[in-house]
Amino acid sequence: MALIEVKNVTKFYNSGEGQVTALGGVNLTVQKGEFLALMGDSGSGKSTLLSVIGALNPPTGGKVLIDDIDVYDLSSERRADFRSSYIGFVFQQFQLIQYLTVVENVMVPLAILNYNHKEQLEMAKKVLKKVGLENKMRRLPNQLSGGEQERVAIARAIVNEPPIILADEPTGSLDSKTGEGIMRLFQSLNREGLTIVMVTHNRENLKFVKRTVSMKDGLIKNQEN
């Protein structure tokens, strides 16, 4: 059984110049333990697909099954619960909360769960150590480099131990050396069993992934296995 099943998903947006087809009937299956790269031109629908998989963006048509759960059959509040336990997001612009320290940012996903402060702190420290930031825990995001902020974002995504990581151009704003470090980190997380779907423009990154899927005009172009 596949972990992620995207079945004939469409997504239309109504913009000023009429309807835009962001996804035109996408079928995609991702097995547990995969490390998948989504490539494609700008505007081809990669981010849209990622957000649809991430239970954040209800599609116009089609189905998304994750762990056999029909994600968009859930109510909006239940879907939030689902995101909390299944999905870890890593955004391109890091999207850290600027007024919280590094360790606090990592603890944010835990704030709505039943952990006491000590447990939260232990979990946050553990993942910060994993991403190599255990000695910068008390800093604010703007006191970190881009690569370090990306690591905080990754720590935040995995602190809750979700089975799936969705990353949208995580290396897009980093220099190639820093980007490579981040890719290695993703690779090691994947080796620990995490399923990763990553949008990337950078062909250099492909040597770290197990499978690549290309998109064009809201459709999957090839599905090389």
């Binding site: 995101r83 909390s84 999905i87 709505i112």
Partner: peptide, 12 residues
């Protein structure tokens, strides 16, 4: 939006 993506419900 970030909070919601990280699993916060509306009530949170």
């Amino acid at each position: 939006g970030i909070f919601r993506a990280l699993g916060f419900k509306r009530k949170h």
